[in-house]
């Protein structure tokens, strides 16, 4: 970590950051434009579009629903993903690779296909419970992120430490709490954060499964784009960006060190 970073590396990192981050500034800049339509670069300065969006009943409803959905999905994904990752990394299970492949497959299949497939299954079942169906759909998509990061941190766990703790007098329960948990916590946190953001931003799966009463933000954004083309669209997009940013910052602030350690 103390090594000096070479110039070519700095330049490469700079370019990558510019390509990834720069586009995010576009909607933010457009959202403060004092024009009745979207322009770039922005003309004038106003925050009225934010006011308009926040005052909008539908927008608020969508935002709150997305929060609720992402929270449920994160909890469900962690409840399923952590034991699954533990099982896959710590034990030899027959068909291990097949299970892992199945879980990770939503990352390979286009999301829109996953969404339509789920819709067909639910329709064939004649099942009508939109919230549950959205939770299932999102969990299918989010689970790989949890499994991946939790598995990674479990693989890094030093088994010797568990033996050492046991010899020192720690019961299996204490070993889990005092030795394993501190080592996997960053992985679980990272997985949970990814999961939350992926669910919060999801469009292709929600598109098939949502209805008027369960209408996540990305869908709302899309309908607004179809209806009008004023900077409030950019304001919604900006709010989503700020929210994700805030989430990462809070996690970084609270668990910053451990995340850095996980990344290194």
């Amino acid at each position: 970590m103390n090594e000096t970073v070479s110039l070519p590396l700095k330049i490469t990192v700079g370019i990558i950051l510019a390509l990834v981050v720069a586009p995010l500034f576009v909607p933010v800049l457009m959202s403060i434009s004092d024009t009745p339509y979207i322009v770039f670069p922005p003309q004038g300065f106003t925050l009225k579009w934010y006011g308009e969006v926040l005052a909008n009943h539908e927008a608020r409803g969508s935002f709150l629903f997305s929060l609720e959905l992402a929270t449920i999905v994160t909890v469900v994904s962690l409840l399923l993903g952590v034991p699954c990752a533990a099982g896959l990394t710590r034990y030899r299970v027959p068909g291990q690779d097949a299970v892992l492949g199945l879980i990770l497959s939503p990352l390979i299949v286009p999301l829109i296909v996953t969404g339509v497939a789920l819709l067909q299954v639910f329709a064939l079942m004649g099942w009508r419970a939109t919230l549950m169906q959205l939770v299932i759909g999102h969990t299918v998509v989010c689970l790989p992120y949890v499994i991946r990061s939790v598995s990674a941190s479990l693989l890094l766990v030093n088994r010797n430490l568990e033996d050492a703790a046991a010899v020192l007098g720690a019961s299996p329960h204490v070993v889990a709490m005092k030795v394993i948990w501190p080592q996997v916590r960053p992985g679980i946190l990272a997985g949970g954060t990814f999961c939350f953001i992926v669910s919060f931003d999801d469009y292709p799966v929600s598109m098939w499964l949502a209805d008027g009463n369960h209408f996540p933000v990305p869908l709302y954004l899309y309908t607004v784009i179809e209806r009008s083309f004023d900077p409030s669209i950019a304001a919604i997009a900006s709010l989503m960006i700020f929210f994700a940013l805030l989430l990462v910052l809070v996690i970084e602030k609270v668990f910053g060190l451990s995340l850095a350690r996980l990344a290194s």
Binding site: N158, N160, L161, D163, A164, A165, A166, V167, L168, G169, A170, S171, P172, V179, P182, Q183
Partner: peptide, 20 residues
């Protein structure tokens, strides 16, 4: 007897100190 009840001390090859 389970490990944690044996009241032994052990030194491991790579020390196995708790990093946290």
């Amino acid at each position: 007897q389970p490990v944690h009840k044996r009241n032994l001390g052990m030194l491991f090859q790579n020390y196995a100190l708790f990093p946290h």
